[in-house]
Amino acid sequence: MEITNFITESFIRNINPAHNVYNFTDPVKAFGEVTTIDPDVILLDLNMPELDGWGFLDRMQESQMAYNVYILSSSTSELDKKRSSTYGNVVGFLVKPLEEDVLSNILETNAR
């Protein structure tokens, strides 16, 4: 988890060091801070302790948060892909390893 986040963060810094990256390994803590941070985009891992990616999406739905979410998964499962599309704010399903130009594109299109 920590390593995955390190990789993603390194990629983002490499694309543009000016981006503010908030890196969480604790999804509960992340959910607590999400409104304060008010992010342009959330990269969400499905496989997390305590609160998994689906639980995180459910909580966002309950709190009517509309932040754009990209799912980051190491699974190529079509089932997960289908399920993620049922959430209105999920705009993409990315399979690890993340490619830098894909990430660059995402950052560009979601920048406010």
């Binding site: 496989n47 190491s74 690890k96 390893p97």
Partner: peptide, 12 residues
């Protein structure tokens, strides 16, 4: 795939 994707990312 999970640990392998990390290895690939780190190598990059």
């Amino acid at each position: 795939r999970e640990p392998l994707s990390r290895v690939l990312g780190l190598v990059q």
